[in-house]
Design a protein around this nucleic acid. Sequence first.
DNA 1: GCAAGGTC
Length: 923
Amino acid sequence: MSGGHPIRVLNVAEKPSVAKSVAGILSRNQGLIVRHGRSRYNRVFEFSYAIRGQPCQMLFTSVTGHLMEIDFDDRYRKWHSCDPADLYHAPLRKFVPEDKLDIKRTLEEEASSCQWLVLWLDCDREGENIAFEVVEVCTVANHQLNIWRARFSALIDRDIHEAVQNLGRPNQLFADAVDARQVFLQEIDLRIGASFTRFQTMLLKDAFVLDFNRNDRNLVLSYGPCQFPTLGFIVERYWEIQSHEPEEFWTINCSHNSDEGTCTFNWMRGHLFDYTCAVLIYEMCVQEPTATVTKVKQQEKLKYPPHPLNTIELEKRASRYFRMSSEHTMKVAEDLYQAGFISYPRTETDSFSQRTDLHAIVQEQQGHPVWGSYAQQLLDPGAGLWRNPSNGGHDDKAHPPIHPTKFSAGESGWSQDHQKLYELVVRHFLACVSQPAVGAETTVEIDIAGEFFSASGRVIIAKNYLDVYRFESWGGSMIPTYVVGQQFIPTTLTLDSGVTRPPPLLSEADLLNCMDKAGIGTDATMHDHIKKLLDRFYATKDSNTRFSPTNLGEALVMGYDDMGYELWKPYLRSMMEGDMKAVSIGTKRKAEVLATCLEQMKACFLDARLKKVKLLEAMAVFFERSNRSGRDEQLGVGGVVRRCGLCQEFDMVLKRQPAGNFMVGCLGFPQCRNVVWLPGSIAEAALTTNVCNSCTPGPVYMVQFKFRRLEIPPNYNVDHLGCIGGCDEILRQLTEICGTGSRSLPAVPARGRGPIASSSNVERSTTRQSACAHCRQMGHSSSDCPMQGSRSRGAQSHRMTSQSGESSIPCDTCGLPCVLRTANTANNRGRKFYSCQSQECNFFVWEDNLNNITGGRSAPRANTSSSASNPSRRGGRGRGGRSGAHAAGGTFVSATGDPISGRRCYVCGDPSHFANVCPNRGT
DNA sequence: GCAAGGTC
């Protein structure tokens, strides 16, 4: 203490705007002197202030986020300076970057003339970490500094004055743990990110034609522990959609018109996938259609307001309600925060502390022209609208949930988005302290021939929070009155069909959810990772804020997935975070954990690099090889196999492509494109002097193959002396089973990529102009060859996708895709069949027979539909054959009392069909 | 030219 002299206090905030705001609040803008420091952005504010009665000369300046960075030593900085694998042990340095040196100097100079240092850094993990950096710089300049921490969460008078009058000490333990964690993650992120980014960029960028409409000298195929798992979520959902096979289901619907209106009853079984079963039940109902009311239940239902608002919820809701991107939302929220209208927008917390004066926040909103009256009601104890907010279960112990901190009925400088976001924050807050909406629900159950149906209606009794939270709604629909025991004849009773649908693409809100659950990124950075995927051409966002991977994004994830690594999954980072926790609570030593982790990561990197073929193969599915590394890189492995039978001019030679797969190609390429693709499972292939004695014209030299054990079925030998001339059954089978490396996908659909995915992938491939190894025709690979049986790949490969996107099959005789038609004959009306487009072929097959043969999804029906007398066939049922079912839009004709045979149509008595598809119904 | 984390 220096007698009567004021204490000189150096105050440091995380950013200039906070320094300005806090200085303004503390000085009440009286006697505030502003001067420039060495940094042009970070000014120094000076004013007098009394802390607990102690006169102080306050100096208030700021940093701009982190003062320090880490990077590799200079000699490792250039991309070609070292093997990327060296980056796992290359020395790092922590330093103040060039553009922050002037801030550092300001801090040093001011610190040397002060007695106190007050840290006004944000109260979060990174804030503590930055505080550490500030302390480090300042104490070097002045060892005597008395160091304090100010804790605040909103830039409003109340918070700030409270903070400065209740200064604490920086929590050394917490700061250490935070520091250890941050340094650890920083280091891991840098080493992994840089090594993989350099590796995959240098491997792929020039090897393929990546036409993204930009100068690809700057193209970087980055890899990062946050961006890749985020991409993984998008790709996974995309694959899920692609592999979805629509499945037809059946349901019985019932409605009843009465004086009070129409009531729709839903079948309590939901829906059935078995048509026969559904029809039997339907017929039962139709025979005894009288409905008896078995249950009438009336119940009060509550719909609760949301939890208090945190960052992720803010981003999700802004995306959902206003279609604002998360990145833009955070920018707008930051503006509102800096202007003092809302509290700190980067918070995990979704519950208010006991000390928060919630009423005061509501009071401020009373004057608003739109929601002011709602705020008044909330404060009126007689209205009974108030309810203490729920606890969402998250607390970052640094900031309260996002809430309004200053009243505004709109500012002149605000954009529409500022307006919307402020409104969302206010309405959300008001909703949080409101009673739930109350509804009265009525459920009625009826019994028709032993089958149960139910209908429900809801009447909203009190909207409560829904009055102010206009973004949410709660549908209400009235239903007529029924009493137990009441009987009636349904107005309609129909058997309807539907198909299962794939899930939708991920929306921005879904994506944030996935990231949140997996712990990817922080509140402040999640939107950055999403944007990075767009910037790197890994994903696109449609107008509906839904994300799809680009070919590039899908190829990269596919490549790593094929390696067997889950580098694109979030586990890696979660594991590291877990280890860090162990460090922070002292059960593991930091250096140990770091060393182990680095070893593991390096091993993973080296192994991934060994399997780089997988990346190249995946890329080749989507992109053309570039000239820059085309033929030159094809590694000749030796010798002439035979004379080319196509051009009859050049020799066919055994080659190994850069991607690792083998082929026998004509030296006349590109004029002659004759090629024999070989199985992707070949590890080695060497030409021998043995000549095949069955293939002509000879000589055709035989090749000694060595297959990779794990990639071929167990009943095949690893070593095989084979012939590429067409006589070799084993080679043909293995080509079919394993595919041919880069050109086709594995025969067995991996992960979520089902048959639909593979067909569309193959169509996108630009390297398909080679001939089929089986029939020598162009335009397909041997595994899709129409001249082959549908043996190993089953029903899926038997189908093609025609240009119009319709499912098709190849003609048995000529191989052309068949046309799917619908029969219109008396016996088979509505039944689908395939026939050849060519007049010469008489190829014809019933679609439902095809399913039986190939064992498609309609298997349960296969047993029953083989007999022509079975009526279930007549409904025109089958994949794509739903026309008969859709005719079920007509109404149920009420019972006449006539006896009905179980095997006849109830409407017209015809035994060839059931009532739901009867041509006479409804007329 | 690389990560993720702050922020301008």
